[in-house]
Design a protein around this nucleic acid. Structure first.
Lengths: 245, 245
DNA sequence: TCGAGTTTTAGCCTGAAAGACAAAAACTAG
DNA sequence: CTAGTTTTTGTCTTTCAGGCTAAAACTCGA
């Protein structure tokens, strides 16, 4: 990597701390955890009790342990906020490292997107709450930007993956599912179209059972479930496909 | 963030190095730089001259400087490999941090996807080469996985963004463009369909000029250009759109 | 200069998929 | 039994991708 032997390799002003020459900066792992509650998209946040950014909302997470991987670390740390078994999906989002993102120390942060299915209510510590994503007050550091990234990622993936499985409980009616989609997408989703789209894509299937609908009567609703509970990409979604033959 | 006052916060075995308590690990920034050359997708790699992984291909990049951001850092480091002005696109890909990804030191690496338009030939140092992406030999550390991520990302974005602008030179004929797409996608792309798709999406436009086609005759080909040279998402691509009204 | 060969361009057709809408089905409550 | 409610089914329209063919526009050689 010493491209011309002139030592430009250390133009950053730091010699090697190991064979790679990487300087040692702090690294933390954070998560934007979404859940649909009361028909609205919510984010799990906690209120900082000390400076910097005292009193502001912050994302759950913390320091990367010396012996753990990134995903491993955020799972461990979320286990202290939300029961890990409740996390239906987790994926890496982005890493932020602006020198001034934290005014007190040079710290990088890798953000994850986590999802919790609707209908359960994990125990959270007293300083932690589920906030409506649309009404988030300014957050600590660059956490607002991370939440925005996470919302965009979720919205996009609802279009071209089966990620709905992570928002919905194991079984659901189509009108329930359309409410989860509406909460995450921010606009109405017609249950009848949603049904056809997801059925054609093979993402959901009928369980055979049904439940009575609202207390004021109405045809009983069929119960559906997602076929898979891991992320799958809808391949029919690709444009510029390989030629037919 | 000390969720219950029992000190579980430091369950990773490390006390705070700063107010965040982040342990200090090495961090490097790498780039998967693609260019279409000779009609094929190529990756910029260099051959390691010393252990670990001596003799294996590796991605360009290096240590994050103490005062620079992540994107800033990879741009600086690529300037030593490829003239920065030639980079038509750069985006963050993923951060890898398995404790054993580097056997000699705990190092995190943030990978970027970079693109260089076809038709130019940046000066690269002697240990550095453009390798066909489809014929890459095993690479150092987890770099192979990063190249795979980058290829998937590029292929996906060719479907639903205007990222072709970063593969093509400023002006091009449709058959040239279809060759760039074929190289990146790995399959034939009919120039006539590509033209209609990109025109309808408003991604490309005619320059008004044209150039003679192959030496054996043929109708002159119209020259096109991309309307934008920054990433834009094709919104018509979203399924589950907001209702019409 | 004319015809053969080559490449690009334009037009037409098909099929897949999404979304709007309306009617039928299946229930509750009074 | 009827009115009201909700789900489900079916039809229609629109949009877009992609295949195919014919026309256009050029070069080259006879």
């Amino acid at each position: 990597m010493d491209i011309n032997g002139t030592g430009e390799r250390f133009a950053d002003g730091f010699g090697p701390a190991a064979h790679t020459g990487a300087p040692r900066v702090g690294h933390e792992v954070l998560a934007v955890v979404f859940q649909v509650r009361e028909g609205r998209l919510c984010v799990l946040v906690w209120r900082r009790g000390r400076p910097p950014c005292e009193g502001l909302w912050a994302l759950p997470g913390g320091s990367l342990g010396m012996l753990e991987g990134l995903g491993e670390s955020i799972r461990r740390q979320l286990a202290q906020k939300v029961d890990v078994r409740d996390l239906s999906h987790l994926e890496q989002l982005e890493t932020r490292g602006d020198p001034d993102r934290d005014p007190f120390a040079r710290t990088l942060a890798t953000a994850y997107l986590g999802l919790v299915p609707a209908g359960i209510d994990p125990v959270v510590p007293p300083d932690t709450e589920w906030c409506f994503a649309s009404e988030l007050l300014p957050m600590a550091f660059d956490h607002t930007a991370m939440v925005d990234s996470a919302r965009r990622r979720l919205r996009a993936k609802l279009s071209y993956t089966n990620i709905g499985f992570a928002l919905a409980p194991p079984e659901f009616t189509m009108s329930q599912l359309s409410r989860y989609y509406r909460a995450a997408l921010g606009h109405d989703v017609a249950a009848t179209n949603l049904r056809r789209v997801l059925l054609r894509r093979g993402q959901i299937e009928e369980t055979g059972r049904s439940v009575p609908s609202g207390r004021s009567g109405g045809r009983p609703a069929a119960l559906f479930r997602f076929r898979a509970r891991t992320l799958e990409i809808t391949d029919a979604f690709a444009v510029l496909r390989p030629p037919a033959d």
